[in-house]
């Protein structure tokens, strides 16, 4: 979840930056030291605004810099367990797909994409469902639930966030719409459990699409 939280800290203003106004300088320093930084309790800081000096700056013996206390508002993103997020498929690998969820990437494992046997087609950057014929490709929009979040403070990119889309109302946006429409029409079960009559058609379509992709 994104939050805006008030924070305070001390910034070191180096002498060569004692040029223009104080507020602009400290805003820049706070930006460079906080934005993109990940903290286990707050999450990753996306941006900082409203940077204000708090009291006077201090001159320390032996250092020509000024130490200025500042207060500011930080917008942070923390992936919480059970949180529903929208994202974009960033990459398809043998074991699933990586999803951009704002400033961080999360993994949805093959077994958690839908109620179907998934195969990864890494060459064409997509996951294909064996029974339903549904595919998940790079660049598509999905809705998912966060099931595990282990954040790495030293290297935010190494953080491991696990997702699931194997629930009604989750998955690719098109699937959600499709399931909703089907549920309205005939009260059919949602999320990948299509009526059996549809299978051959979708399977054939999937094969056709694969052939077309192979020829191209």
């Amino acid at each position: 979840m994104y939050r805006i939280i008030p924070m305070s800290d001390t910034v070191r203003i180096p002498p060569e930056q004692m040029t223009e106004g104080l507020e602009g300088t400290i805003a820049r320093l706070v930006q460079s030291s906080f934005e993109g930084r990940l903290n286990k309790s707050f999450g990753i800081t996306v941006l900082t605004t409203n940077v204000q000096p708090a009291g006077e700056g201090q001159v320390i013996h032996g250092d020509g810099a000024i130490y200025q206390k500042v207060s500011f508002d930080a917008m942070v993103f923390k992936p919480d367990n059970q949180e529903i997020v929208d994202g974009i498929v960033a990459e398809v690998v043998e074991f699933g797909a990586f999803i951009h969820i704002g400033p961080l990437d999360a993994l949805v494992h093959m077994s958690q994409v839908m109620n179907d046997f998934m195969t990864a087609d890494v060459g064409n950057e997509r996951l294909v469902g064996k029974e339903s014929g549904r595919t998940l490709e790079v660049g598509e929009n999905v809705r998912a639930r966060i099931v595990t979040a282990s954040l790495n403070e030293l290297s935010p990119r190494e953080s491991k966030i696990g997702l699931t889309m194997r629930q009604p109302g989750l998955g690719k946006f098109e699937w959600i719409d499709e399931d909703r429409r089907k549920a309205k029409e005939g009260g059919a079960p949602a999320a990948g459990d299509e009526p059996h009559g549809d299978k051959p058609v979708t399977k054939r379509q999937a094969k056709k699409a694969e052939k077309a992709a192979g020829a191209a």
């Binding site: 180096p14 002498p15 060569e16 004692m18 040029t19 001159v59 250092d63 020509g64 810099a65």
Partner: peptide, 12 residues
């Protein structure tokens, strides 16, 4: 002294 140090470190 403090100001001279700032100047020597590049303050305008």
């Amino acid at each position: 002294g403090a100001r001279a140090l700032q100047l020597s470190m590049g303050a305008p």
